[in-house]
Design a protein around this nucleic acid. Structure first.
Length: 257
DNA sequence: CTAGGGGTTCAATCGGAGGG
DNA sequence: CCCTCCGATTGAACCCCTAG
């Protein structure tokens, strides 16, 4: 097969996210789903990609998950990973969906959006791992955002203060106070002043209860919250964000002009 | 000959109806 | 209560045509 320029870009994205579904790739590249399927099939044939069937909870056929094959590893000189079918994976897939939504929304608005998914942060040895980070750039100015996608399974508050949401928020506040974002400045090649944390919840009820904890620990007002449905329904300018600390309920993360 | 597009078929899953 | 069947749904694969 002859590798197109777009094929290479697809492979890069697959490396970036570790693994992607056909629909995610089609959305990223504005491809017709069938065209996307066909290219992916060709890439699988050339062992640029490999695929596994992932179990799903939704109706319909289970989609394939594509991850780098040997040819792609040789082409880029990067090692790929075969995704393991764990709870972690479905959470990661949801994070990918959110990041792609942000990316496409920014594209439409003419704003540059660079992504840094979770697994790349993880292997860099950071102690606090967000579900993803992104940099929005407009006219030579960039802003850094962390993304937390609350699946609704984590404990909000556990007595041992370990790995619960409250503990994580405390650590975010520490990082904000000390402005420990050197890793991200280096990755995005921009000297960010501060960052914002975008906290996505899967229900309004959960948003309210976590807001209470945010108020307690975020004295700066850097934590923005929204429900997943509002987030996915609206564009990047939409005033859907609440900032618990400032008692704001319709903030925007970026101004329209 | 290759890439893109439309139509159709295949495969896998869920939920509900119905029977034992 | 459990099992099987069936339709609905969704993603992928297949076939054929067209344009360059």
């Amino acid at each position: 097969m002859k590798l197109q320029e777009r094929d290479k870009q697809i492979l890069q994205k697959v490396f970036m996210f570790m693994c992607l579904r056909c629909l995610q790739i089609a959305e990223l590249f504005d491809m017709h789903i069938k065209i996307c399927q066909r290219r992916l099939r060709a890439l699988v044939k050339g062992d640029y990609l490999r695929k596994i069937l992932i179990p799903t909870t939704e109706s319909g056929r289970s989609p394939y998950l594509y991850y780098p094959g040997k040819s792609a590893e040789e082409l880029f000189g990067i090692q790929g990973y075969k995704p393991r079918l764990t709870n972690q994976l479905s959470h990661q897939q949801k994070n990918t969906d959110l990041l792609i939504h942000l990316k496409k929304s920014a594209d439409r608005a003419g704003i540059k959006c660079s992504l840094l998914p979770e697994h790349l942060i993880r292997i860099s040895g950071q102690t606090l791992i967000p579900d993803g980070t992104l940099a929005l750039t407009r006219e030579s100015k960039s802003a850094l955002f962390f993304l937390e996608n609350c699946a609704g399974t984590e404990v909000i508050k556990s007595p041992n203060y370990n790995e619960d949401i409250e503990n994580k928020l405390i650590r975010y506040a520490e990082i904000f106070q000390n402005n420990e974002i050197r890793f991200y400045c280096k990755f995005f090649e921009y000297n960010f002043q501060r960052f914002r944390l975008l906290y996505i919840t899967n229900s309004g009820k959960r948003l309210d209860s976590i807001s209470q904890i945010v108020k307690k620990h975020d004295s700066f007002g850097f934590i923005y919250m929204a429900t997943k449905s509002a987030f996915l329904k609206n564009n990047i300018f939409a005033p859907i964000w609440s900032i618990p600390t400032k008692n704001e309920i319709s903030a925007s993360i970026i101004k329209e002009r």
